[in-house]
Design a protein around this nucleic acid. Sequence first.
DNA 1: TAGATTGTTAATCGATTAACAATC
DNA 2: TAGATTGTTAATCGATTAACAATC
Lengths: 270, 270
Amino acid sequence: MATGRTHRPATRSRGIPEATVARLPLYLRALTALSERSVPTVSSEELAAAAGVNSAKLRKDFSYLGSYGTRGVGYDVEYLVYQISRELGLTQDWPIVMVGIGNLGAALANYGGFASRGFRVAALIDADPAMVGKPVAGIPVQYIDDLERIIEDNGVSIGVIATPAGAAQQVCDRLVAAGVTSILNFAPTVLSVPDGVDVRKVDLSIELQILAFHEQRKAGEDGEGPLPSAAAVRAAAASEAATAQAAAQAGSAAAGRKGPDGDVPAVMPA
Amino acid sequence: MATGRTHRPATRSRGIPEATVARLPLYLRALTALSERSVPTVSSEELAAAAGVNSAKLRKDFSYLGSYGTRGVGYDVEYLVYQISRELGLTQDWPIVMVGIGNLGAALANYGGFASRGFRVAALIDADPAMVGKPVAGIPVQYIDDLERIIEDNGVSIGVIATPAGAAQQVCDRLVAAGVTSILNFAPTVLSVPDGVDVRKVDLSIELQILAFHEQRKAGEDGEGPLPSAAAVRAAAASEAATAQAAAQAGSAAAGRKGPDGDVPAVMPA
DNA sequence: TAGATTGTTAATCGATTAACAATC
DNA sequence: TAGATTGTTAATCGATTAACAATC
């Protein structure tokens, strides 16, 4: 406080906690819904409920951004939407590229929520020549060889990787070399990146495994379990339920080699 | 320590930290890769590198599970794979149901990594009658009206929601009422569940927003930024890049109503 | 034995929460 | 003014990390 810089409010600027940053999008979503319903103001209690957090946490989070509320009244919805959007960098347009247009990549590309939130799919890239030129979500797929040119032409700094695991590191390296400094990784592999590059990962299989851990705990505690009713029927009848010989056939997606690690069967997490 | 219960090692049993649980799948993945290469033992340093964490953290994490290493030697790969699998509950088979077989749901169902990790897709469920009976990833889609029967017949306790946001809470309520106690939510909405039910969420848009925040920080720091080289070309040339009029056309997916909130255009996060 | 590496301790750091003074 | 609600404090809790004694 009162560090007296020159050009900015200075109140925030340094160090919004990571946990707070991760919740800002939740608040923004809840606020956007209120805005669409033309609700003018909202209390920390109401907004916290809508975002699924407690109100003390919300007020603490907002305190890092500044004092945008009015005691006795609450927060102005429109004003807060603007402030959080600005804080998150959503008042500008972020061109992104997606690499690996298999089942998952195509599903993600078809997701419409990008544009409305400050993101624009600048290009879809795949390593399968047969995919090139085919429109996915209205955007023609481009060939992996043009990756560097595409990044530069569009000033892309955020990349989404939806390739098989074996190709992900290689793609990541090329993205970073071309100037990308933020990566969202859907491939089930750990990516190595230099300092200054942010990576976030989304991994279906890991999420399921975490759920399985807790599920096992619930089942194991028997007597004093939190949900005696939901002890569930538990297996016993595998009945029909086709045994999912699904697997592979992931289609295109890949972007080159089949990494040193054996697995990598399909499109996502492992 | 030494709480002296009766039927189990007692060492662990109570309270593995949530942060540790969330890393166990990463360790397991790295160990599985080593196992496939027939590597017999691994040190905390090596394994930590493969999992993308530091070795002190890894050793601390493992200390919650028990003493499975050998000083001066390291960890036996096969043994550790077994212990972590058991801890995560992956030595048993978890039938799961997926509700909402649109673009995203279909992509997830096609992902082959489930079965190999203790999960089995017991059923795919959708609200679109036109989808019913059509095989996705080799499994015929079933109608939403049969949700309760399917849960019970298969003893399902884990559900995956891949519906539009507007349908997610309703689907969630039905899953919970039918006995599901763990939910993986891909719909861009906050779910309310009773105590004892775990929810994890995967949200593309939130991840991108978090990246945008950090990206903005990098760009704003100018002079002393961590990656002066990667200041990137930044926009200036939006060149061709079709402006993604993609949006909606998400196909089936939906599972009923179109919730009170207006948005929910397509398949995923918002 | 000497070298290597675990398992644990203790310090530090960051996040959460309740409570309440400030103030609309 | 009285009532409501924010913004902040301070206590608590949980996670991370370095260091090193234990021990293979």
